[in-house]
Nucleic acid binder design. Structure first.
Lengths: 182, 182
DNA sequence: ACCCGCATCGTATGATTCATATGGTTAGCG
DNA sequence: CGCTAACCATATGAATCATACGATGCGGGT
């Protein structure tokens, strides 16, 4: 029950367990992969080490499966829930962070060949179309399942950004076509 | 001139020096802060260690100021330029990555108080308005300065994403108003 | 001329995070 | 009943990160 530093990752773990109920690391990995993972990346190894830390801090409670794999099942404690709620109530002063290699390459277009830019744009268009299809399928499947609907709202933002990106890269492709990067 | 692993950061450094000409680490820090920094984040310390690495690998050339601070001035070598161009020609198979704390908190809205969501939305609206103003000012100032214009194209994507986010959070704020998160 | 204060500039540090490789386990199918 | 594909977990060293601190020099005021 010692005092520990909680990172964003910690709160995602707490939040996921609070939403889903008792979960194993693997459960978390899968649940996060289809949701929060889209706007906060995790190496899965962290989903094994982090719950352990949180358990040692008294924010999670550990239970082991009786048989089979004897997997570790974590559930949230009162003080875990309290920590989470405090965090949710805290103001967010940060702007989102983006890491986009494609944009970097485009920024350096002066140093690249014109066919490089065309290729880049084409690939990005495909990327975003794929992602849009993914999101839309989720929207379609879970959009009006009552007990998950409140979590689906972030999908709208995901889609909005995807469409913005798609439009942009289409425009870049058109410019490349017209020889603007030569 | 040993073989080293080059990261995205490495290429940004190479690219910046290729664009700007001979530069000190501090120059890089500033130039990146107003441009590529918006879609790839750097702790500034890396802009001191990375050029050193690249110099040891023969991709940059080091020159020291004669007087004063004797700052280290880096310029790109032939093999540096070649490495950069190879990278620019490589296809990008990755989708951009996002890290957005606000979205995480919204995802967990079921666990938070309704006034938390309203507050969150309000803050995000301000964040994005501020960022939009920033971008638009850049657009306005440098939009038709011939020698930097080709680098300004990424601004459009930045703006597109900002507007998508702004719309989204306005919608969330309106929903909060209507009591949808209670 | 000189000195003071602020902006400029640079580096070291320990803590986190990360990618990746490797190794068990189990269900279910043939 | 044995085999294989999917499932599950951890260890490791490298890369990244935030942050704190230290140094330098320019400009203005006296």
């Amino acid at each position: 029950m010692s005092r520990v530093r909680l990172s964003t990752t910690s709160y995602v773990v707490l939040g996921m367990i609070a939403l889903r109920g008792p979960s194993t690391s693997y459960d978390l990995k899968r649940a996060i992969g289809r949701s929060v993972g889209y706007f906060w990346n995790f190496p899965h190894a962290q989903l094994y080490s982090e719950p352990k830390r949180l358990e040692e801090a008294g924010l999670l409670e550990l239970d082991e499966e009786e048989s089979g794999r004897r997997r570790k099942i974590y559930s949230i404690t009162e003080s875990g829930r309290a920590a989470l709620q405090d965090w949710l109530a805290e103001p967010v002063n940060a702007h989102f962070e983006l890491r986009d290699i494609a944009e970097i390459k485009l920024f350096f277009n002066e140093l690249a060949g014109p066919e490089d830019v065309a290729r880049l744009a084409k690939d990005q268009i495909e990327q975003h179309q794929r992602r849009i299809a993914e999101y839309e399928q989720m929207q379609h499947r879970y959009g009006d399942v009552a007990d998950v609907a409140p979590r689906m709202i972030t999908l709208r933002l995901g889609l909005g950004m995807e469409y913005a990106a798609l439009d942009f890269w289409r425009d870049v492709a058109a410019r490349a076509e017209r020889g603007e990067f030569s």
